[in-house]
């Protein structure tokens, strides 16, 4: 095994000094080194989206990002969405609309929806669907997820 690399990783505004192997993914490091288990490993191939995190404001895959390559960038995980204990508008809407079933996809879904609305505060339904197109859900059929994100958007009825 090669020498671990010292990195400094900024997650949800907090900087962690860690040692990682070059092949360690951000997802692995979040879950195993800093106990942020909200981001899920559903496939480890970048397909399911359960590990979605925001890096420098853009939604990306925790499982396809190497921790060493994420050093120095601003990372936001699902644990960073609620501020001061209050649910974010996206989280509140997902709750209110009953969009959550097993919940395994939800951390990634909530992060993707948050990134979408940050870019485009008033998306059309088609834009909502495109924004969430990288997040698989096996329970909901997506209907209530779209309703929730629509209501959390600037144009949505609150």
């Amino acid at each position: 095994m090669s020498e671990a690399i010292p990195i400094s990783l900024t997650v949800n505004g907090r900087t962690h000094r860690l040692f990682v192997q070059p092949w360690h993914t951000l997802l692995q490091v979040l879950r195993e080194q800093i106990s942020l288990t909200g981001s899920k490993r559903g496939c480890n191939q970048g397909v399911c989206g359960a590990c979605s995190v925001m890096i420098d404001g853009a939604v990306m895959r925790g499982c396809l990002t190497l921790a060493a390559d994420a050093a120095g960038r601003e990372i936001v995980t699902v644990e960073g969405l609620a501020v001061g204990g209050a649910l974010s508008p996206v989280q509140q809407a997902l709750l209110d609309h009953g969009a959550v079933q097993c919940g395994f996809c939800m951390p990634g879904m909530a992060v993707a929806a948050t990134a979408l609305l940050a870019d485009n505060p008033s998306p059309s339904d088609a834009e909502i669907r495109d924004g969430l197109s990288g997040n698989l859900c096996r329970c909901s059929g997506y209907v209530k997820v779209v309703e929730a994100v629509r209501s959390a958007s600037a144009g949505g009825a609150s």
Binding site: T37, G38, V78, L95, V100
Partner: peptide, 19 residues
């Protein structure tokens, strides 16, 4: 009503076996 455990699930706090 919303599912009882929803808040935990959307904040990343819900614990699944691998967590």
């Amino acid at each position: 009503i919303p599912r009882l455990e929803t808040r935990d699930k959307i904040t990343g706090r819900a614990v699944y076996a691998d967590d």
